[in-house]
Design a protein around this nucleic acid. Structure first.
Length: 870
RNA sequence: GCCGCGGUGGUGGAAUGGUAGACACGAGGGCCUUAAGAGCCCUUGUCCGUAAGGGCGUGAGAGUUCGACUCUCUCCCGCGGCACCA
């Protein structure tokens, strides 16, 4: 198909200011076959020269910001998954533009991070060489798709002029005490040789990118205090329109849990005055608490071992052994245990008795204190009050170690043996008896508060965000460690030999030095430590010798705020101009992968909220609306991957069918938010559709009026396409366009077919989906040489009067079952009585009505007449 | 275990409580062609029937309704997320 005809754009001269449409394209109208390779690149060039898709700062038209997740430019090139999301949002953007909006649809490159580094290592090249190459490839592919990006705003996270501001944001976090260093258990990936954020580790303990099993390690890390924003990240979901699935997942991830902290006194003298604070969401079961369980990492455990309680030596030994055992358990082992379905609610629980007892504050009962690793230090207070009668895990533990089980909530099923977790009345609980829980839980909490025994408390599942990586290819963290400043107590962090001194703003960016050898060391130290000239620096505070931080930021750092940079990509005074942010923010619709819901999406909301608090950005939330798209699987139904050999390269599809077909296909193949399996045969169907559009537009158009029937269909199509596009229902919008083509082809009422003006309307509504073919046909339709692009025309409105011109088919039912249909003109739709009479006279219906009594007749306007008979 | 989303022809999928299966693919038949390809036309949920026509059909079962893929309840299955989170 390619290269058979002479190039029609040979006469096109790009140096002329006024665009000249290729005259050869017009001359051969009617005979020319649909050949995308002859038209697509031609128009791409022209659109680019005309800067057709440029968003204007402060334009009078209302702004509309459409955002897609900017890609990591991988060596593999564009994935058909990118194409799906970007083409769909391109169609959406184009429609918004045609509706008179000042649309911002930008693109950039998220090029820092592990994938780029790993790829460069594999290719034995430097990331700084690889990245520009990959970007060039991506860019070329994007352009060959005819996406209406505003290229003048292109950004790249690895550009020092960009990451200067990524570093600047970090300094602001540091300044406000929200970036801090701490010894934390980190997820270490032995394959990538770096630590990872919790969000990057999958449930089975593997790294989401490379699949290697991660290990827990203690290491000094930078953390961002996202937990401080937990409540607002949760609360402000009310301000935005995220799809249910996304909102729910964020809510679960933040994991807010309201409960009560209750203090238990330890009875042992050595722990006199020591209290254990437990967190529970079921304070109503306090009378049923029959033991206390400490997490193995709990500080009391350590002091217990130290105290060497008299006559309890053997016990101490037992405890020490247990602690050692749990610590050596890897994450993987714990999970493996949890996957045994026969083990009740989860793992086989293990624990050890401390020999200590605590006093239940409500009834002064003495209850034993145990240590068990089913209680984790990282959540709540790291201690629980165990109520085996009403908690599955406690129940299992009590059974195993023969601890008492005391029911305090009445269970409707008297024979029930196990932990009853349902609602009921409180029993065996003194003054509380008779209260219905959870309904009257609040009374219990108030009671505890009044007596000074407990306080309301909220805990979150969300943890602070581990923000440092021991890798080369990332933004350097802009701080230095200075021994001199520590000695002189200048900005020292307690208990360290080095003061952390932030690099002053005017010295940003701290540029990433060029390193020949950048492989991860595996020792937990960043390869940047080898760049001696770079590491050894002057302290910006005291001027003495100091060391730079060698850890870099995670690959999420650059994507935290990139959508702001699009608004003002060349600003060197601020991350973006305030006025521009006020004009364009918030993002009207943000479209991206579901897998980023608790990663990038949550992170960037947090960072944005912080920027809001320090007065940098103008709105509370960055994204007004968020939607996700489904994954595109290979033809074999598996995830596309090199090892399966099932990767579809968009270039191949473009070469064979053209970009318009590829775009249409990816939008048509199924609902946007659903997973889809690639099917080459179905691609051909879309190509056929465009071919028919081409043939009909050139051959079945005249100056005569379009038949009423077809005209009515056209206007219904306009309405449907407009609505569907608005609701991101791309698949049905295209189906409807196909239907129209089918009707047009089979329209026998007038051989001349469609009137030219009506064809224009059809092309206009097809244009967002298939920009090239529609532009070509649009230009062919014009009489003069110079015409404005179809893509800056107004999106047509449907004429409600024309909608009604067609005949209406009404279903006639007997007792809700279809028995006949009735074809009437639209004018008759209101004549209920007449319609019922006609329906009754139908031969088929008569048969059913014979000798039967009509109880009721229901008429649904224009849809159904239903005879209810006995 | 908890939370969320689903279950419709041979396949991808359509259906504000109102004609289930739009649109597309595939398959079968025909036309065109020396042939192949492309294109065009017809058929295509299933069962009975030559046909007209009729029965059955949206994971299973019940319910609400004149009418249920759609709403309610119970259950089964699949996918995704979280998970010894107190």
């Amino acid at each position: 198909m390619k290269g058979k005809s002479t190039k029609p754009d040979s006469k096109y001269n790009p140096s002329e200011t006024e665009p000249k449409w290729p005259s050869s394209a017009k001359a051969s109208a009617g005979k020319q076959k649909y050949d995308p390779s002859l038209i697509e690149s031609k128009w791409q060039k022209i659109w680019e020269e005309q800067e057709l898709y440029k968003a204007i700062d402060f334009d009078k038209k209302p702004k509309f910001y459409v955002l897609i997740e900017f890609p990591y430019p991988s060596g593999a090139g564009l994935h058909v998954g990118h194409v799906r999301s970007w083409s769909a949002m391109d169609a959406y953007s184009r429609k918004k533009r045609m509706e008179g909006k000042n649309v911002l649809y930008p693109i950039g490159w998220d090029a820092f991070g592990l994938p780029a580094e790993n790829y460069a290592l594999r290719m034995h090249l430097h990331p700084s060489t690889i990245v520009p190459q990959n970007i060039a490839k991506f860019k070329k592919q994007c352009k060959s798709l005819g996406l209406s990006f505003d290229w003048s705003r292109e950004i790249n996270t690895t550009d020092p002029r960009y990451y200067k501001w990524t570093q600047w944001i970090f300094l602001k976090f540091f300044e406000k005490g929200l970036a801090y260093r701490a010894d934390v258990p980190v997820n270490w990936c032995p394959s990538c040789k770096t630590n990872l954020a919790d969000e990057e580790v999958l449930t089975d303990g593997t790294h989401e990118r490379c699949g290697a099993t991660t290990e827990k390690r203690m290491q000094k890390q930078w953390l961002l205090r996202i937990t401080k924003y937990a409540d607002r990240l949760l609360e402000d979901l009310k301000l935005v329109d995220y799809s249910q699935k996304i909102a729910t997942q964020q809510i679960n991830w933040i994991g807010r849990s309201e409960g009560t902290t209750i203090r238990f006194k330890i009875k042992d003298l050595r722990f006199k005055n020591k209290e254990i604070e437990v967190f529970t969401t079921r304070p109503d079961t306090l009378f049923g608490a029959t033991f206390i369980v400490l997490a193995p990492e709990h500080p009391i455990v350590a002091s217990l071992i130290k105290s060497k309680i008299k006559n309890q030596k053997s016990k101490i030994k037992e405890i020490e052994e247990y602690i050692q055992k749990t610590q050596s358990k890897t994450e993987q082992e714990r999970i493996a245990e949890g996957q045994d379905p026969s083990a009740g609610s989860g793992q086989e629980k293990t624990g050890v008795d401390t020999g200590l007892t605590a006093i239940n504050p409500v009834n002064n009962e003495e209850i034993p204190i145990w240590i068990a690793d089913y209680v984790v230090m990282g959540y709540g207070t790291g201690v629980i009050m165990a109520v085996p009668a009403h908690d599955k895990r406690d129940f299992e533990f009590a059974k195993k170690y023969n601890l008492p089980i005391k029911p305090v909530i009445s269970c409707p099923n008297k024979k029930f043996k196990g932990a009853y977790i349902g609602e009921g009345k409180i029993i065996n609980s003194g003054e509380w008896n008779g209260l219905s829980v959870p309904k009257e839980n609040i009374k219990v909490v108030d009671w505890l508060k009044k007596k000074g025994l407990g306080e309301r408390e909220v805990y979150y599942h969300l943890r602070d965000w581990v923000f440092s990586r021991q890798h080369y290819w990332g933004e350097p963290i802009p701080v230095v460690f200075c021994a001199n400043c520590a000695k002189n107590k200048i900005s020292n962090i307690k208990g360290t030999d080095y003061a952390i001194v932030p690099v002053p703003e005017d010295q940003l960016p701290v540029e990433l030095p060029y390193l020949e050898k950048y492989e991860p060391s595996g020792t937990g130290e960043s390869p940047l430590a080898n760049a001696k000239d770079w590491v050894n620096t002057q302290c910006p505070a005291c001027g003495r010798k100091a060391r730079r931080e060698t850890d870099t930021m995670p690959n999420w750092a650059g994507s935290n705020w990139y959508f702001l940079r699009y608004l003002d990509p060349h600003n060197d005074k601020a991350l973006a101009g305030r006025k521009k942010m006020e004009y364009f923010m918030p993002v009207d619709i943000y479209q991206g992968g579901f897998e980023h819901t608790t990663l990038h999406l949550l992170y960037s909301r947090f960072v944005y909220k912080f920027l809001y608090d320090i007065g940098v950005v103008p709105t509370r939330e960055p994204y007004k609306k968020r939607r996700s798209h489904g994954v595109v699987l290979g033809p074999d139904g598996r995830k596309m991957s090199k090892s399966f050999g099932n990767i579809i390269n968009p270039d191949d599809i473009i070469n064979k069918f053209g970009a318009d077909t590829l775009r249409i296909y990816e939008m048509f193949m199924g609902p946007f938010d659903q997973t889809i399996v690639w099917s080459e045969e179905s691609v051909e169907g879309c190509f056929r559709f465009l071919k028919r559009v081409w043939e009909l537009s050139l051959n079945k158009v005249s100056n005569r009026n379009t038949s009423v029937k077809l005209l009515s269909k056209l206007h219904r199509t306009i309405k449907k396409v407009s609505q569907d596009l608005e609701n991101l229902k791309f698949n049905t919008a295209i189906a409807c366009l196909m239907e129209f083509i089918k009707d047009w082809r089979s329209d026998k009422s007038d051989k001349e077919g469609l009137n030219g003006d009506d064809l224009k309307k059809f092309l206009l509504i097809l244009a967002p989906f298939a920009p090239h073919i529609t532009e070509e046909l649009w230009q062919k339709l014009q009489n003069s040489e110079l015409q404005q692009s179809i893509h800056i025309q107004s999106f047509p409105n449907h004429d409600p009067i024309l909608l009604e011109k067609e005949e209406v088919i009404i279903a006639i039912q007997i007792n809700g079952k279809l028995r006949d249909t009735l074809s009437i003109s639209f004018d008759e739709i209101e004549n209920q009585q007449t319609l019922k009479r006609i329906a009754k006279e139908s031969q088929k219906i008569k048969k059913y009505l014979k000798n039967r009594k009509i109880k009721k007749v229901i008429y649904v306007k224009g849809r159904v007449i239903n005879f209810v008979i006995v």
